[in-house]
Nucleic acid binder design. Structure first.
Lengths: 188, 188
DNA sequence: CTCCTTAGAGACGTTGCGTCTCTTACGGTT
DNA sequence: AACCGTAAGAGACGCAACGTCTCTAAGGAG
């Protein structure tokens, strides 16, 4: 019997975990099934990850990579933001709502990283736009900066259906652009 | 042995369920524990609710009531919105993050109601403000209308700590008011 | 007073967790 | 080339909680 080791084995485990997630969903995923699919024992899993949540998070990272790596620079603020939102949507389409929910309930600090990371991406995009003279200033409140991505994340969590492109457009045109372009009147 | 019936028994069951939720959290709540605390058998629970999620939702409704019943009317748009957000925050403080997460993962359509309900509340508040002449028009995009409550809900879901008052103020002053007061410049 | 619903109690089979144990393949060391 | 330690592959195990089922008897309806 060929016995797998190191990176090869690890990859097989993560592949098995992810396939299992896609097939059964997060809620119905069992460690037994993952082990069986990977043709190995449960101990091999528990030697690497302490529980279901950690395993699935690792599998997700392994399969889908990170969004915050490269920042769009199309020359248009509107298109840049739409691009970011589109990438989030695509990623979510792969992951699916129940996995999202399930992970959040068991591993609350997970998305903290991708969460705060998005603020940085948006800040860069806005800075680029300000340098092009597209908007008056890059000095935008954090709350405004994160509004589109946060609202999209909220949308993905609460509606079961895939988020349509029109929602992304609405987020940008009805909420984000009015807040950063021109000088939105302040109340206080 | 006194045997409880009808509303009295139901109330005892829901009380027991909620106390158990507060004590153990949603994830660690067991039907056995609820039954034991209510001094009854599991069958009495399963006769009324099909599973844990349904039971806890019922208990939550029973204990916390609804937010969308009465709509604030302080005479100031800013105060009205802050009041709504404050009520959401208070409610969440009672419920707690893990219950929120747990319920969402098992009963995804739950909050749909409170969710769409908030849009109506905000619409009324904005209409009141427009009639007072506080803002130019009550014709505000749905997306803008729901932005504050959705962003707050997002905040409650992703940060474990209680939401501070400053966040509510920021949501209103940095995002909502700029969008509804004056004529925010449109891009399309 | 009788009857019918259902409360209260707990046994039961099942599932999946996480731990433990055992054998044995493999890669590094001497 | 022989040896040895680590970890793979496999599965048994005890435990917890699920949801179902069964039984007895309380107490309201007639």
């Amino acid at each position: 019997m060929e016995r797998r080791r190191g990176a090869e084995l690890e990859a097989a485990l993560l592949d098995a975990a992810w396939d299992e997630v896609l097939e059964s969903g997060y809620a119905r995923l069992t460690m037994e099934a993952v082990a069986a699919r990977a043709h190995t024992g449960k101990q091999v899993l528990y030697r690497r990850w302490r529980n279901r949540a950690e395993l699935v998070i690792a599998a997700m990272r392994y399969r889908t990579g990170s969004i915050i790596d490269d920042i769009p620079d199309t020359g248009s603020l509107r298109d840049d933001v739409l691009e970011v939102l589109q990438r989030m949507t695509d990623r979510f389409a792969v992951i699916g709502p129940d996995i999202f929910h399930g992970l959040l309930s068991e591993a609350p600090d997970l998305d903290q990283e991708a969460f705060t990371g998005m603020a940085g991406v948006m800040a860069t995009i806005v800075k680029q736009a300000a340098e092009r003279g597209e908007i008056p200033t890059a000095d935008v409140p954090e709350r405004v900066l994160t509004a589109p991505t946060n609202l999209l994340r909220h949308e993905m969590l609460f509606t079961r259906d895939p988020v349509p492109a029109s929602t992304l457009v609405s987020l940008v045109d009805d909420v984000f652009l009015p807040l950063v372009s021109g000088t939105p009147p302040r109340s206080g």
